[in-house]
Nucleic acid binder design. Structure first.
Lengths: 132, 132
DNA sequence: TGTCGGCCTTCCAGCAGGTGGAAGGTCAAG
DNA sequence: CTTGACCTTCCACCTGCTGGAAGGCCGACA
């Protein structure tokens, strides 16, 4: 399969696929003309990457997951540990964003939003009228 | 004030403060010895930057807010519009993360997490057993 | 046979938003 | 006069790609 084909089927841009090869996540064959030639196994790995990236795993985490993916002797506990760590990260990020949302929402709610210069948002950001 | 002092008082690393100068967010005086010399006004701007960055505004948005901050004739509507746009972005991000959380939580919940190789997480990521 | 469009290749640069480190100048205390 | 903490500039690096230039290759059509 040419890169255009796997790109379409995996949902990853060709540029990204070449980049994944650069950083050693995948190693397709080459044809005589220099074109990359992807096997079905390569396709599965790319699809795997696409999904795990979109679930928020970092490239390095994807590298780990990918090696577990190809490991017949893996222990599911190992995979679960990685996924659980990521779950914790996601939870922390959500909590952080909710904190921001509350603070910013507070500022916005108190601002007239008219032609006058008085603005609690600016005041809040400047720290003169701290928001808690 | 030296950079170390403003760094401590604004909560921004010295490196970051120099970087903000590089990109034109701030322009402190210089002493004869070449050291940067920060005024109280500079301090307020840095604190403003620290707060607005930590509330999720991009550097370019901070630049806009900062120019409104120093503008006696600003209209609060302008500030409110920027803040409201950011609020929408934060909401979208939260929703996206909650989606991820749900999907990943689903995978994790179904994984034994023991010494056996069978792993619904890996299967889910590989796309063989799609999760909805 | 030429040539045209669409694919493929490599390489280099750049995005955000900093961070790390090297090499060197300055200052205040002891 | 030295020591150590501070300050300076400059350049490279981080993540995860993305864009573009310059050139090779392939299949169809005239």
């Amino acid at each position: 399969m040419n890169i255009g084909t796997v790109s379409e089927r995996s949902g990853l841009p060709a540029k990204t696929i070449r980049y994944y090869e650069d950083i050693g996540l995948i190693a397709p064959d080459r044809r005589d003309n220099g074109y990359r030639d992807y096997s079905m196994e390569d396709m599965h790995r790319l699809r795997f990457l696409q999904r795990s990236r979109s679930l928020g795993f970092s490239v390095e985490e994807c590298r780990q997951l990918l090696s577990l993916y190809g490991d017949r002797d893996r222990e599911s506990a190992e995979v679960k540990a990685i996924a659980n760590a990521k779950l914790g990260e996601i939870d922390r990020k959500i909590a952080e964003l909710q904190g921001l949302r509350e603070m910013l929402g507070h500022l916005v709610a108190n601002c007239h939003g008219d032609h006058r210069p008085e603005c609690p948002i600016i005041e809040g950001l400047s720290g003169r009228a701290p928001v808690h």
